Computed example of a mutant assay.
Amino acid sequence: MSNEFEHFLEGQDEAVSALFLENKGEELTDILVAALEEAFEILLEAAPAETLH
């Protein structure tokens, strides 16, 4: 991992910790849901249009 990416992750960890300390679970949930939605959109774009089973 690059130092820049590691620094980014450290900043994310600090932000999440601050939300927990401030009892802002609802805001944290909103952030996590948005991240999951974005991840699923990326996966759908990367998936072939038709899959074989």
Score class of each variant (00 low, 15 high):
18 A>Y: 02
9 L>R: 09
13 D>H: 02
19 L>K: 00
42 I>H: 05
9 L>E: 05
16 V>F: 01
53 H>C: 04
29 T>R: 12
9 L>S: 03
41 E>A: 12
45 E>P: 02
51 T>C: 07
30 D>P: 00
32 L>Y: 02
3 N>R: 15
45 E>G: 07
50 E>F: 10
18 A>V: 03
17 S>C: 10
34 A>W: 02
53 H>E: 13
42 I>G: 03
36 L>N: 11
20 F>G: 04
28 L>E: 00
23 N>W: 03
42 I>F: 09
23 N>G: 04
22 E>I: 00
41 E>H: 04
50 E>G: 05
27 E>H: 02
42 I>R: 09
47 A>M: 14
9 L>M: 13
27 E>N: 03
29 T>P: 00
41 E>F: 03
10 E>M: 04
39 A>K: 15
45 E>Y: 06
43 L>N: 08
35 A>I: 06
52 L>T: 10
14 E>F: 07
20 F>L: 13
25 G>I: 12
42 I>D: 12
5 F>L: 15
23 N>E: 09
25 G>T: 13
45 E>M: 08
19 L>H: 00
30 D>G: 02
33 V>K: 09
6 E>C: 04
35 A>R: 07
47 A>I: 03
19 L>T: 00
44 L>M: 08
26 E>Y: 11
23 N>S: 09
17 S>I: 11
8 F>D: 06
10 E>C: 04
38 E>F: 04
6 E>F: 04
22 E>S: 00
36 L>T: 09
7 H>I: 01
28 L>K: 00
42 I>N: 08
9 L>I: 09
36 L>R: 09
53 H>A: 11
44 L>W: 06
43 L>R: 11
34 A>V: 03
40 F>S: 07
5 F>G: 05
27 E>P: 01
22 E>P: 00
29 T>H: 06
1 M>R: 14
28 L>V: 00
50 E>M: 08
12 Q>F: 06
37 E>I: 11
46 A>F: 07
6 E>P: 01
30 D>Q: 07
20 F>A: 06
45 E>H: 10
6 E>M: 09
22 E>Y: 00
9 L>A: 04
30 D>Y: 01
35 A>G: 04
33 V>G: 01
46 A>K: 15
7 H>Q: 07
3 N>G: 15
44 L>I: 04
48 P>L: 06
51 T>A: 06
52 L>K: 09
31 I>V: 11
45 E>A: 13
13 D>T: 01
38 E>G: 06
40 F>Y: 11
15 A>R: 10
44 L>D: 13
15 A>N: 05
1 M>G: 15
25 G>V: 12
17 S>A: 15
26 E>H: 11
3 N>I: 14
29 T>A: 12
42 I>C: 05
21 L>Y: 07
35 A>Y: 03
24 K>S: 14
44 L>N: 10
